[in-house]
Lab assay of single mutants.
Amino acid sequence: KEFRPGDKVVLPPYGVGVVAGIAQRSVSGVSRAYYQVDFPGSRSKAYVPVEAPHSVGLRKAL
């Protein structure tokens, strides 16, 4: 896996977040693995496909 729990990442347009782990989510009846990204200071979460994280701009924070 490219990202691990605890990694600081950037996800446009949300900003800097932390990978909380990998979650299985069902979309249109198909279960897939997603990185769960939490954003400190907020209750917001984002789910990014493990198979294509760069397709939505997910990258490691510098």
Rank of each mutant, 00 (worst) to 15 (best):
K1R: 13
K1Q: 14
E2S: 12
E2K: 09
E2F: 09
F3Q: 01
F3P: 02
R4T: 08
R4G: 08
R4W: 10
R4F: 12
P5D: 04
G6I: 01
G6N: 03
D7A: 04
K8Y: 13
V10L: 08
V10I: 13
V10R: 05
V10A: 04
L11V: 05
L11A: 02
L11R: 00
P12G: 04
P12S: 05
P12D: 07
P13E: 06
G15L: 03
G15P: 01
G15A: 02
G15Y: 03
V16C: 15
V16G: 05
G17N: 01
V19R: 00
V19F: 04
V19W: 00
A20H: 08
I22K: 03
I22C: 04
I22Q: 03
I22M: 04
Q24Y: 13
Q24W: 13
Q24L: 13
Q24H: 12
Q24F: 13
R25E: 04
R25Y: 09
S26T: 15
S26I: 14
S26N: 13
S26E: 13
V27D: 10
S28V: 08
G29M: 02
G29P: 00
V30S: 07
V30Y: 04
V30I: 10
R32G: 14
R32N: 09
A33V: 10
A33T: 10
Y34A: 01
Y34E: 03
Y34P: 01
Y34H: 05
Y35D: 03
Y35K: 00
Y35P: 03
Q36F: 06
Q36E: 15
Q36K: 09
V37R: 00
V37C: 04
V37Y: 00
D38N: 11
F39M: 03
F39H: 00
P40K: 07
P40L: 10
P40D: 08
G41D: 13
S42V: 09
S42N: 10
R43I: 12
R43W: 09
R43Y: 11
S44Y: 13
S44V: 15
S44L: 15
S44R: 14
S44I: 14
S44W: 13
K45I: 13
K45T: 15
K45S: 15
K45N: 06
A46Q: 11
Y47L: 07
Y47M: 07
Y47P: 00
V48S: 01
V50W: 04
V50T: 05
V50I: 10
E51H: 06
E51M: 06
E51R: 04
E51F: 06
A52H: 09
A52V: 06
P53M: 06
H54D: 14
S55R: 09
V56H: 14
V56A: 14
V56T: 10
G57C: 11
G57W: 02
L58E: 11
R59G: 07
R59C: 12
K60G: 15
A61C: 15
A61E: 09
A61Y: 14
L62M: 12
L62H: 13
